Amino acid sequence: MQAMSDVQRAALATAVEQLAWTAVREVLELEPGEGPRSDLPDADLRQMWLTALTSLLAIRDSAEQLAASTALSAAQRGADYPEIGHAAGMTRQGARRKWPGLAGLSDERRRKLTWWNQHGREFADSVRAVLADAGGQREPSRLTVLRERLDEIERASPAARIDACDMVLIDAHAIAMNTASGHAGGLLAALIADAYAATTSHSALVSHDSRTCAADDCPDEPIVEVWRANVDRQAVPVCRAHAIDALGQPATRIVAAYRPDVALIVFTEANGDA
């Protein structure tokens, strides 16, 4: 990465100073171009310099927030901590302490794009089916937002699509958990569970060693978690056979999958879909 030259740094410092004094003039309602002059009273000069200090510190805080966002974007596009640290003028350990959690984000973006390419059309159709059934629900604003986000994500470029994917999944999950739509809502919930299993490291972090199927005396390994509206206080882990049985009950949803694609397979078997 090419470093900034001294001339470029000086130009940047000048631009920051000009921005700060523009803010000073707006706050103090000064004329354009007006600034400290030797003929002004000390009280006026003091007020100008204090306001400039406030402006510069606000710029610093904004720059810190933008730097964090920029480090995140760089990591999502494949930058590692040594590269981020070099760009920030610090060691990789310093970069990790300042912006934790950036490792592996480019892999997560790749997994999201892969999932969308494989299941995006089915997901979009499922969302629209639920929205069609849920048109009379009490939260039209949420439904409207989801429709708009779905339209946006389908029109977007691959990079923008990945950035919008998380919010679409969150909104769709809320609808799937609360809709009265049976098959469409269950299918959407299963797709979302698979999406999270495929695109994040959550499934890899779940320890299955101490988990067994929640059904009585069942020693089989759980593969999904199910939840029944107005019945279960929390989701319960179940094996394949008991997941299929549970999905035969009204308003039961798959809310988590321990491996990619397993939720959709279980839902399909439970509903006899081809």
Rank of each mutant, 00 (worst) to 15 (best):
T91G: 14
D80S: 10
T212P: 01
W49S: 07
A184Y: 04
A243Q: 04
A79H: 08
E108A: 12
T51W: 06
Q65P: 01
W227L: 15
D151R: 13
S55W: 01
E26H: 09
G33F: 15
S73L: 11
P250N: 08
T114D: 14
W21H: 15
A134L: 06
L150T: 13
V226C: 07
N178W: 05
K112F: 00
L146P: 07
A58T: 12
D273S: 10
S210Y: 11
I162W: 00
Q76T: 05
T22P: 02
L187R: 14
A176P: 00
A235K: 06
E83P: 00
E29R: 11
G101T: 11
P41W: 10
A174E: 10
A274P: 13
A134T: 12
H183A: 12
L264R: 04
Y196T: 00
V145Y: 03
K112V: 03
S207Q: 05
E221F: 03
D42R: 09
W21Y: 15
T268E: 04
Q2L: 14
V206A: 07
A156H: 06
A193I: 01
G85I: 07
A274H: 14
P100W: 12
A75M: 02
L57P: 00
A176Y: 04
T199Q: 08
A132K: 15
Q8D: 11
A58F: 00
E225T: 08
R240E: 13
R9Y: 05
R155E: 15
S210G: 04
A174S: 08
V236C: 00
A68F: 04
V231Q: 15
D61G: 01
V231P: 05
I175Y: 00
L105D: 02
L19P: 05
R138I: 09
R253K: 13
S210R: 11
R147W: 04
A132E: 15
C165H: 09
R121D: 13
D216M: 06
K112M: 10
D61T: 05
A3T: 13
G78W: 04
T51V: 07
E34Q: 13
R96D: 06
A160E: 15
N271G: 10
A214R: 04
D209L: 14
V127W: 06
D6Q: 13
S69T: 11
R121H: 11
V168I: 03
V238W: 04
A256I: 01
I59G: 01
S203K: 02
G85D: 02
D166M: 05
L264D: 01
L57N: 02
D151V: 10
P219K: 02
E148S: 14
C165A: 14
